[in-house]
Nucleic acid binder design. Structure first.
Length: 488
DNA sequence: AAAACCAGCAACCGCCTTTCA
DNA sequence: TTGAAAGGCGGTTGCTGGTTT
């Protein structure tokens, strides 16, 4: 333990951060060793609990809550001090996958550790991983969760839902309301590995767009100007002891393989990205409770969120799709409309979905006047759909009231050359968009990459259908640096 | 050497639940 | 039954000290 606040000897120092509450004269701020001694003595005599009586009976000028916290987090004799062991870290990761931010329950599983300790550890870890552009959970755990989820689903007739958790972790079963994680982003898992995005064939991308599979296209950014103090390999002091390279290598394959459309589909044994279907935890979702996404930012091109109604399809498509799908198949397939309805169902109550749903409603009313004829190709339909969503997401990003605006701000802060002088930036953008930043404007780059994904000419300039949606191009351009848009 | 950045940590805040009179 | 008090919990803030630029 570093120099503790309790080492402070004077009341003045102790109250440096806090201030005496004028009304009741209860001290705040760091505890002094004297106060600690008083509290320990009191608990020895009277036992834990009734914390408000401490002040009355011992003369300690601390509120009951503060006493309880101090005792629980620092003075309890059974506390285990020091850094977390590898086993403890592994356990925390497992428990978080299982419980989410239930620090107290996690602490109950880790003797000698406090919820505050675990919470601090986790939040620090999250920040590191975000910066590194790595998923929150190691692939081993994702795989475990996947498998356990399958087993859980297969054993749906069991009287309670704990089989999943117990199978996963071979530990005590908890009942975790599924709703706990329903609003979490689902596509973060792709974040770290999107350098491979440009390797995804355009037709595959198109098929993905036309499906309800939740492939969020996101770009990992470990900000080039930000350093990582520790080796990334330290973040996963799991039994596998994956180094960063090993970790990425391990993921590189599955990223492509795990596409339900790829020919070498081999789903069951591959770690999946993002959240395993129906997982109770935000696996690899990149959230931070205390700060906007600062490391990896998300730049979502047409992104279909994972649908509650198609959990199985995330990793294990219940209905195997043709490995090579022709446009004709797409025409006959209801997948596009199905995807729309699935995606936009209000039952998808996630925040992003909710925003997009509202946006889609507005969009629908706007587009009534320019309905495409029935002869519109499915390709156009798919493209429109994807672009609509791109546009919708961008609109949401530009809405200062939108929660997505926050990440948009991150996008701008990361991408725009406002900061100006970093020589890393062109190279950085280049690495992300896979093109020469020196020769293309950001909007050109974006369109270029979208052409790669959707198909040449489908996006942007030549396609009449898309020309009806010039705002998408504008939006992307603005998103990537034209600072006249949305006030940037 | 100084400034900036960052990780780690302790503690507070506010909300919610539980307990009890 | 109800309202106040106590306790529990998760989120957040702010400080310290180490590291990097």
């Amino acid at each position: 333990m570093r120099k503790g606040h309790s080492d402070l000897s004077s009341v003045e120092e102790g109250s440096r951060r806090g201030s005496m509450r004028e009304s009741c004269h209860l001290k705040k701020g760091p505890w002094t060793s004297t106060e600690d001694a008083i509290l320990v003595d009191y608990v020895k005599k009277h036992g834990e609990g009734n914390w408000n009586a401490v002040q009355k009976n011992s003369g300690l000028s601390r509120c009951g809550k503060s006493c309880r916290l101090r005792w629980a987090n620092h003075l309890r004799p059974d506390l285990k001090k020091g850094v977390f062991t590898t086993e403890e870290e592994r356990r925390i990761i497992e428990l978080h996958a299982k419980l989410g931010n239930k620090w107290a329950r996690m602490a109950a599983e880790l003797p000698g550790r406090t919820d505050n300790e675990i919470k601090n550890y986790w939040n620090t870890r999250i920040k590191r991983l975000q910066r590194a552009g790595l998923p929150i959970y190691p692939p081993d755990l994702c795989l475990q969760v996947n498998r356990s989820q399958e087993e859980s689903q297969n054993a749906a007739s069991l009287p309670n839902g704990d089989s999943y958790a117990s199978n996963l972790l071979q530990s005590d079963a908890f009942e975790i309301p599924r709703v706990e994680f329903e609003n979490l982003e689902l596509n973060q898992g792709c974040l770290s590995y999107s350098p491979m995005l440009h390797d995804i064939p355009a037709n595959t991308m198109l098929k993905r767009v036309g499906s309800s599979y939740g492939y969020g296209l996101m770009f990992p950014i470990a900000h080039p100007t930000k350093r990582l103090r520790e080796s990334v390999s330290n973040y996963f002091s799991m039994p596998n002891q994956l180094t960063e390279n090993a970790y990425r290598k391990r993921f590189d394959g599955p990223f492509e393989i795990s596409s339900p459309y790829d020919s070498n589909l081999n789903t069951n044994d591959q770690p999946s990205f993002g959240i395993p279907p129906g997982s109770d935890a935000p696996l690899n979702s990149n959230f931070s409770p205390s700060e906007p996404m600062s490391g990896p930012i998300k730049l979502e091109l047409p992104s279909y969120q994972y649908s509650d109604t198609q959990e199985d399809s995330w990793v294990n498509p219940a209905y195997p799709l043709p490995l090579v799908e022709s446009v004709d198949n797409l025409i006959q397939s209801p997948s596009v409309e199905q995807a729309k309805s699935d995606y936009l169902t209000p039952q998808n109550s996630g925040l992003l979905e909710a925003v997009l749903h509202e946006s889609q409603k507005l969009k629908t009313s706007k587009d009534d006047s320019c309905q495409q004829s029935s002869s519109t190709s499915v390709l156009d339909d798919v493209t429109n759909f994807s672009l609509n969503h791109c546009e919708m997401e961008f609109e949401a990003h530009c809405d200062p009231n939108s929660p997505l605006a926050h990440s948009a701000a991150s996008v701008f802060s990361e991408f725009t050359p406002v900061s100006g002088s970093s020589s890393d930036e062109p190279q950085f953008i280049e690495s992300i968009l896979g093109c020469n930043a020196k020769n293309e404007t950001p909007s050109q780059m974006a369109v270029s990459r979208l052409d790669d994904f959707i198909g040449p000419g489908q996006f942007g300039h030549n396609n009449g259908c898309v020309r009806d949606k010039p705002s998408v191009t504008d939006a992307i351009a603005a998103l990537l640096g034209e600072d006249t848009y949305c006030g940037y």
